[in-house]
């Protein structure tokens, strides 16, 4: 019954979007993080989505979405000369994270809209299934 697969598909969509919301929250929380070296600086994280074509072994349903991994942005981090900062390095520089708050906010809205879409789909399918169960009564 195809309608049952919709719960898996919409569920995979919801979990992918909630992971995206999670990374966005982490990015926004660290928007003002500073560190004393380039390597330790927080970089914007974003999930990589991929469609599941046929992954019967993994138990994914066709047409679901999966998160392939989380990548860190390679955009340059901003460095600032601020010798009085407690985290300043020997040359007096601190490094700011490369999080762009505006694009993270837009990302957050897009994720929450997509999440709502998936919830809506699951709800509609549930109603259709319930009505199918009552068939002939």
């Amino acid at each position: 019954m195809s309608l049952f697969n919709i719960f898996d598909i919409a569920g995979s969509g919801m979990s992918a979007q909630s992971l995206r919301l999670n990374t966005t929250a982490s990015n926004l929380a660290n928007a003002d993080s500073v560190s004393s070296s380039v390597d330790q600086t927080y970089r914007t994280r974003s999930p990589v989505f991929a469609a599941v074509l046929d992954d019967a072994q993994q138990g994914y349903k066709q047409g679901s979405v999966q998160v392939k991994g989380i990548v860190e942005s390679q955009a340059p981090v901003r460095q600032e000369y601020n010798p009085s900062h407690p985290l300043a390095n020997e040359e007096g520089y601190i490094f700011h994270s490369n999080v762009d708050s505006m694009s993270e906010m837009a990302n957050m809205m897009s994720a929450s809209r997509s999440y709502q879409n998936n919830v809506e789909i699951a709800n509609t399918s549930k109603q259709l299934l319930l009505r199918t169960l009552q068939l002939g009564q």
Binding site: I9, A10, R20, F49, Q62, G63, S64, A111, S114, N118
Partner: peptide, 8 residues
């Protein structure tokens, strides 16, 4: 539904 799950 799978189209909508894969919007992004």
């Amino acid at each position: 539904a799978s189209n909508l799950a894969n919007t992004d």
